[in-house]
């Protein structure tokens, strides 16, 4: 089982400090973890810090996996490279491996992830000619193709239609269950979070404000504090919890 734990982690861009001491208990793998917070709260920054792209003191503790096992999917998806979808996914798989040749096993791994994301039809298309949602699906394929044990995804469903949002979250959930991987998703859709993620980390203004089981974290009080939104959680007729938004607070109250 893989776990991820933050211990007084600092994250900064040059001199500009975003986090001073982000701390979480050990987050275990095997299920999905959400990272929520308003715009500019520091979700992407925390991911970059965990992925080792930002400097800062403190400890990111990983058990049950190597640092090489970590894959991070950044938020932006603009790509100008003259590469086909196949080449882009192979490229992600081949990083850190040597040799120009592709084994049958490697090719099978690429085929498998394209099939699971239902994008085999795109395999020979050029990256630059894809739609925004298609590009996001390719990014997801690039992130998962090497079967990492620690996955950080920054808004992986932001460009997807309803069907593909559902499919991707289901895929990620079964991926986590199969591999025992820690999978952390930055998400804005809180109903999605409630449906798919077992654990939730809430951040605001460079601080971790809550960590725990999703339904406990997403309390009306926290939603008010994070987003200045009045909300309630009700159970739908099939028994699943839904967040209903009643309105916005006056800013500053």
């Amino acid at each position: 089982m893989v776990t991820l734990e933050l211990d007084r982690v600092e994250a900064r861009y040059g001199r500009k400090i975003i986090y001073t001491d982000a701390t979480t208990p050990a987050i275990s793998g095997g299920h999905l973890t959400a990272l929520i917070g308003p715009n500019a709260a520091g979700k992407s920054t925390l991911f970059r810090r965990i992925a080792g792209q930002l400097a800062g003191s403190g400890q990111v503790r990983i058990t049950g996996a190597d640092r090489d096992d970590l894959r991070y999917m950044p938020q932006d998806t603009a790509i100008s490279a003259a590469l086909s979808v196949y080449e882009a996914v192979i490229l992600a798989l081949k990083q850190g491996r040597s040799g120009w040749r592709l084994s049958a096993g490697e090719l099978a791994a690429v085929d498998a992830i394209l099939t699971r994301l239902k994008i085999t039809a795109l395999a020979e298309r050029q990256l630059a000619e894809l739609s925004g949602g298609q590009r996001q699906l390719i990014s997801i394929a690039q992130t998962l193709v090497s079967r990492p044990r620690l996955v950080l995804m920054d808004e992986p469903t932001s460009a997807l239609d309803l069907y593909r949002q559902y499919e991707v979250l289901e895929l990620l959930r079964s991926y986590a269950a199969e591999t025992g991987a820690v999978v952390v998703l930055a998400l804005h859709d809180l109903n999605q979070v409630m449906r798919s993620c077992t654990t939730t980390i809430a951040v605001a203004e460079g601080r971790v404000v809550a960590v725990g089981p999703t339904l406990e974290v997403l309390s009306p009080a926290l939603i008010r504090r994070l987003y200045a939104i009045e909300s309630r959680v009700e159970t739908c007729s099939r028994g699943c919890p839904m967040m209903i938004v009643d309105g916005a607070l006056e800013q500053g109250t």
Binding site: P74, D76, A78, I79, A81, E87, L91, Q95, G96, Q142
Partner: peptide, 15 residues
């Protein structure tokens, strides 16, 4: 080749 995917993406892949 990975650098052409953008700096963020390439370093996310460990480059």
């Amino acid at each position: 080749t990975a650098i052409r995917l953008g700096e963020a993406r390439a370093s996310a892949m460990g480059v």
